[in-house]
Write a protein that binds this DNA or RNA. Structure first.
Length: 429
RNA sequence: GGAGGGGUGGCCGAGCGGUUGAAGGCGCCGGUCUUGAAAACCGGAAUCCCGCAAGGGAUCGGGGGUUCGAAUCCCUCCCCCUCCGCCA
């Protein structure tokens, strides 16, 4: 959520910044409501001041044993008037809120303006392996090994689900544990285990609601009409851990890592990545989340990208880092780097991580603040999140990059300790 | 699911119709003392909104109501705790 005060003071700048992000057209409407609201607030507060004054006088009079019935009657009508005006103000505020919740974050000045084709490649690591044979897509590799089973997954649920058998299931688990160990032991993150079902307020805090409800799985309504939603990423519950809290600057930055499944409707993705397990309704992810001060958040973003890159380096998987342009950057983010891993079966780089600095956008929605060490007033924190990494896509990357001519897959050495030293997946393993 | 108790400032906790934005404690900031620190003592500090300012308004889980006036009374919703039942 953006700061209304900031929009009021920099309307042109905000409208311009939102041009490639959407929502620029509602800035004027918002400012109109804002002006209306302030006019009404000023008026009603004058009446409230009057009521408070007279009420105190009535209290005095009562203490003297008098009964100022005239004043009391006057205050009764004044009270009704105030109630009406307050209701009108609430209406205006709801209108403002509705707009504010739909406005995306403002991009950082370093972000290229434009659409996806304006994304900038920042760096590459590792050279795609030269195959003496035609590398297969992961679904062929996996099905031949008997570790990926899309048919049975569709039988159990529907399309866009996968069953992992034997070494495939173990590989998924090994990848997750390898990543968790790396981030907790070497990168200074604290592991946290969180609910996979969260309420609407939590979803609103990180920006999933109200705008992206169609992307979420919602459970049947609980009593009182308060549904729970399956998390589309651990970013949601982990960022919200400190919702409504005032942290001490001394305890920042908070660095958390969580391993959770992620559930996504993938509405609107019909026809995209229908084969294989690139785009699933359910996938595992190791997620990194940071809560920092504004002064350090961009250093922390660079560090987080480096932490995610380290996973790929140790797995010896070639990748590139891409700085997303304004139009491709997510709703809540001010600046996002994607990590794209090389998939030889598809002959292209595919997203395997996305690291974002949301600045105060989520903190404002979820009321995550910190008290400066100097003891001043509480400020909104900055929140960051990044995949470190998407586990399912990591498994895909291993299958495609490490496949051999005979159909087996060589396990990257960094992963072998997590698989009892297993070096190779062969059919039937 | 049944019965009961409770949600107050950064935290703990008093208040149960009118000088209460809210006692007290802890923690925090500044000072005195000290070579330094601790202790002790003194002082300071809630958040948001409107306003150029002076100043004003709102906020005691959320919403609604009663009243001239609500943290205090009533209704409703949410959440937490205790005991019982059920259960991985």
């Amino acid at each position: 959520m953006l700061d209304v005060k900031y929009i009021r003071e920099h309307p042109d700048e905000v409208a311009r910044a939102l041009e490639t992000r959407g929502g620029a057209e509602s800035v004027q409407q918002l400012l109109g409501l804002d002006a209306d609201r302030r006019r009404r607030v000023t008026a009603v507060e004058a009446l409230k001041a009057e009521r408070n004054k007279v009420t105190a006088e009535i209290a005095q009079a009562k203490r003297r044993g008098e009964s100022p019935t005239e004043e009391m009657a006057r205050m009764r009508t004044l009270g009704d008037e105030i109630k009406e005006m307050d209701a009108a103000i609430s209406g205006v505020e709801r209108g403002m809120e509705a707009i504010l919740l739909q406005l995306p974050n403002l991009p950082h000045p370093s972000v290229p303006v434009g659409r996806a084709e304006d994304n900038q490649e920042v760096r590459r690591w590792g050279a795609p392996r030269q195959f003496p044979f035609d590398p297969k897509p992961h679904w062929e590799v996996g099905e031949r090994l008997g570790i990926l089973d899309f048919e049975r997954a569709a039988k159990l649920a529907k399309s866009r689900f996968t069953v992992l058998w034997g070494a495939g299931a173990r590989l998924e688990r090994a990848l997750a544990q390898f990543m968790l160990d790396l981030h907790t032991r070497e990168h200074g993150y604290r592991e946290v285990w969180v609910p996979h079902l969260v309420n609407a307020e939590t979803m609103q805090g990180t920006g999933q609601l109200p705008k992206f409800e169609d992307q979420l799985f919602r459970t049947l309504e609980a009593e009182g009409g308060r549904p729970l939603y399956l998390i589309p990423t651990a970013e949601v519950p982990v960022t919200a851990l400190h919702a409504g809290e005032i942290l001490k600057e001394q305890e920042l930055p908070k660095r958390y890592v969580a391993f959770t499944p992620c559930y996504r409707r993938e509405a609107g993705a019909a026809g995209q990545d229908t084969r294989g397990m690139i785009r699933q309704h359910q996938f595992d992810k190791v997620e990194l989340v940071k809560v920092t001060t504004p002064a350090t958040s961009y250093d922390e973003l660079e560090a987080m990208v480096g932490n995610a890159e380290e996973v790929l380096k140790r797995l010896e998987l070639p990748y590139r880092v891409v700085l997303l342009a304004t139009g491709d950057t997510g709703f809540a983010s001010a600046k996002t780097y994607d990590l794209e891993v090389w998939l030889p079966g598809q002959g292209k780089y595919r997203e395997i991580s996305s690291c974002s600095n949301c600045e105060a956008f989520q903190a404002r929605r979820a009321e995550i603040r910190y008290r400066p060490a100097s003891g001043g007033k509480a400020e909104f924190a900055h929140t960051l999140n990044g995949s470190g990494l998407a586990v399912g896509r990591s498994l895909i990357a291993v299958l495609e990059n490490c496949q051999e001519a005979d159909g087996s897959v060589t396990i990257p050495p960094a992963l072998r300790p997590y698989l009892d030293g297993l070096e190779r997946i062969t059919p039937g393993s």
